[in-house]
């Protein structure tokens, strides 16, 4: 799998590695997918990178590759900003080859990372018709998570027709941030758009939402989909090629 802009892949890994330290990559002719849960089974990430999004892609037989995302992140940190990236696994090999090429083709770096045997648990995620779908700048969402974490461990997300309100309370007191829907969309990237069938009020652990925000550099916009008594879905699109979707179980009444 070759990417002209290897930085896209580095951003994917950076977006996942805090939530899941290691994961099994499923490779097929259609592309690369991954599903993994955090160790406490509260959050899940689902990644799709379709084959047509790569400069070139070939997969002769389906493979499951156990990879340490922490190690991969370290390797990818050595990559130059404009380097291209090729990922390769040879038949019967126990390692993955990560090759980087500088833009003017005067530097070539190759790394081999050992593959791991991982027990992976797969969950069936039903197609959900969410009550609310919010789109907002991903930088804004990151900031809200950071700001709400000052006040408490949990954030209550409430939606109305007018907007969406994030609030948190704790020993210090309480705080809230309300975003109103953008009425005059000039720049789509900066818009706050709320599609609502029913109002929702759900509470989530801020710590996990903040971890999801590590994927924010992938996309200028984030999508939050919410329904009562349903895990939140937080989506970052990977330009033209797929998405990273995070799911987070809500906090529920005792």
């Amino acid at each position: 799998a070759r990417l002209l802009h290897g930085s896209i892949f580095a951003k994917v890994i950076e977006g996942l590695r805090e939530l899941v330290n290691e994961a099994t990559w499923e490779c097929s002719g259609n592309g690369i997918t991954l599903q993994a849960m955090d160790s406490s089974h509260v959050a899940l990430v689902s990644l799709v990178m379709r084959s047509e999004g790569f400069e070139s892609y070939r997969c002769d037989r389906n493979m499951s590759l156990g990879i340490s995302l922490v190690s991969m992140s370290k390797v990818l940190k050595t990559m130059g900003k404009d380097d291209s990236l090729t990922i390769r696994v040879n038949d019967d090999s126990d390692s993955i080859i990560i090759a980087m090429e500088s833009q003017n083709q005067d530097k070539f770096a190759d790394y081999e990372l050992r593959l791991m045997d991982l027990d992976s648990e797969h969950l069936g995620i039903p197609d959900t018709d969410y009550s609310c779908a919010i789109k907002m700048p991903s930088s804004e969402f990151s900031r809200i998570c950071r700001d709400m974490s000052i006040m408490g461990d949990s954030v209550l997300i409430c939606t109305t027709k007018e907007g969406v309100k994030f609030s948190a309370k704790g020993d210090l007191g309480q705080g809230s941030i309300r975003l109103v829907q953008t009425t005059n969309i000039e720049k789509e990237e900066e818009a706050v758009i709320i599609e609502m069938k029913e109002a929702v009020a759900l509470t989530f652990a801020v710590r996990y939402l903040s971890m999801f925000c590590k994927a924010a550099p992938l996309s200028p916009q984030v999508g939050l989909s919410l329904s009562e008594d349903t895990p939140l879905m937080c989506e970052f699109k990977i330009a033209e090629m797929g998405h990273v979707r995070f799911y987070l179980a809500p906090k529920i009444e005792d």
Binding site: L44, L123, G124, A249, P250, K251
Partner: peptide, 14 residues
């Protein structure tokens, strides 16, 4: 008080 649920409460094992 609120309890943190796990994803298995919502999604099936596949």
């Amino acid at each position: 008080s609120l309890l943190q649920s796990t994803l298995q409460c919502f999604f099936n094992q596949s």
